[in-house]
């Protein structure tokens, strides 16, 4: 589904990603873990070119997203993204947040988008919040609304950038539950997270990143049960 070839990313002189080649398959749930500064968020943000790769290719639906001539907006419609800081539109109600892009990009009529938005909000238990502004919501509610906003575009894959890191501990569960539900429905997901329990339970594959490279990867059993790389062992011994 997404093919990453020789991806490099530098900010000035600082090389953050170092020659990453990796494929995300359809329906796969890939969880990216690693110490901070290892480049996991940058890797995720390169997948939909929120960060432009310095070199290398991101092949999605037969086109190279890293190519500046490609209509990136068209492809982003199929790649949902959920942010650590939620980033709900402050000047729009929850429902408007959800319907804005599908309606503006002519994916749906306003009525269809509204109906779909309400249905999705019901699924995450926020139907009574449709008409309020984001600032009245708790962190967990904001993140669930943000997931609904991404889902409303019917994306083929959703990227999660540390979706629970900005939440109070008691709200982490409600967001992870929504993500687990999505995973069970077969959504292709790439998740950067520090929630090792979630990684173990949901992931088909774990990528352990260190120093801008994928140092080790495998099923949760392999990576958590029998890590090979010394950096993986060290990292896991700290977080588990």
């Amino acid at each position: 589904m997404i093919e990453v070839i020789d991806l490099c990313k530098s900010f000035g002189n600082l090389q953050v990603l170092n020659n990453i080649t990796e494929t995300i398959h359809e329906g796969e749930k890939v969880v990216v873990i690693g110490p901070s500064g290892s480049g996991k968020s940058t890797f995720l943000r390169c997948l939909n070119c929120m960060e432009d790769p310095t070199s290398g290719s991101i092949i999605f639906e037969g086109e190279d997203l890293a190519d500046m001539k490609v209509d990136i907006n068209k492809h982003r419609q199929n790649i949902g993204m959920v942010f650590q800081q939620f980033n709900l539109f402050n000047n729009k109600t929850v429902l408007e947040n959800i319907t804005l892009a599908p309606v503006h990009l002519k994916k749906m009529t306003p009525e269809e988008a509204k109906e779909k938005g309400m249905e999705l909000l019901r699924r995450v238990g926020l139907e009574d919040k449709a008409d309020v502004y984001p600032s009245t919501l708790s962190g967990g509610q904001k993140q669930r609304a943000a997931i609904v906003r991404a889902l409303a575009m019917n994306p083929k894959v959703i990227l999660f950038d540390e979706p629970t890191s900005a939440l109070d501990p008691e709200m982490v569960g409600e967001v992870l539950d929504v993500m687990k539900q999505l995973a069970a429905e077969g959504m292709t997901m790439v998740v950067v997270t520090h929630e090792m329990g979630f990684a173990r339970e949901v992931a088909d594959r774990i990528l352990f990143m260190d120093g801008g490279q994928i140092a080790e990867q495998g099923t949760p059993e392999e990576v958590f049960g029998n890590p090979q790389h010394p950096r993986t062992k060290e990292f896991l011994s700290k977080v588990l």
Partner: peptide, 21 residues
């Protein structure tokens, strides 16, 4: 800056995100 990022990530153009958000 997250407001612009969220708009762009949904596939909205720079101009649209500027104007609406």
């Amino acid at each position: 800056g997250g407001q612009m990022e969220a708009g762009r990530a949904l596939g909205l153009s720079y101009g649209t995100t500027m104007l609406k958000i």
